[in-house]
Amino acid sequence: MTDTTHTQIPMPSDDSGYRSGWSLFAESSNKFLELKLNKFSFGLTMFLIVLAILAPWIAPFPYDVVDPARGLSAPGWPHLMGTDQAGRDIFSRVLYGAQTSLSIGLVTVLFGLVTGVSLGAISGYVGGWVDEVIMRLVEIFMSVPGIVMALALVSILGPSVPSIILALSIRRITQFSRVARGSVLSVKSQDYVTACHALGMSNARIVFAHVLPNCIGPIIVLASVLLGNVILTESTLSFLGMGIQEPTPSWGGMIAKGNEFLTFAPWISLFPGGFLFLTMIAFNLLGDGVRDHLDPRGGSVV
């Protein structure tokens, strides 16, 4: 196998020696897309995102128009993926469902990233009892399986979008803070941090402007791996009736509805399930690709 391409350390190729962040990013992403598998996962991800964004224009029917006369019709024309028991078009609902799943996934991961990385950076940089307290809390929250925690929280706070995002992000916060803490610990004793101190910079500036940018690799890797994970948990929540509520379409909720008609109208849950599966494949492969690309030696991060 051509493993050498992974382990090469990227060296500046031009003579000036100085490279802007953008040109490094462009070169890095070109290299990333050289692999066929990465091309495939990136393409699939983009395709799903475009479908989600364009849902209002592509969808042949509104997602919430009830027409009992057309209820439970099999896939065909004009309902490409059939209809559910209320006569709503499955294809349109799957498209809008993509919007729901992707946006909740993205917001949750971003929220988890910002909160978790800040907590982890503080924990690792300050150390001492602050570190002890934060890491103990993280350990406690990690002791309850994510879906159990999320279910309990949503059931108590009520199934609104903000409480779903909060419930989903708690576990991500703990994961991000662990990774961020580890990276900060490994970076903080390096000479340039000492130099920053000597220059009289504030701790906050050192952490956010100098330490964190050097820890970004593992954090990006974790974010890309967790995206699929969050979407999966959200759909499990919705499947159990504790996530996105009707009439807003969500893949999990659609699969749950179809569960009642599984024997004679399997298309109601098979199509949203299939899209969920495709999304998971896309994000998992993308996450793997990003991990191999940024951290060739690393094992699993989750």
Binding site: I255, T263, S269, G273, I281
Partner: peptide, 18 residues
């Protein structure tokens, strides 16, 4: 392995049941 990681457990349960 990649299919296994990507299959939603609850959906797989439904497919198995079906």
């Amino acid at each position: 392995a990649i299919i296994g990681v990507s299959t939603p457990t609850f959906w797989f349960a439904l497919v198995l049941m079906l």
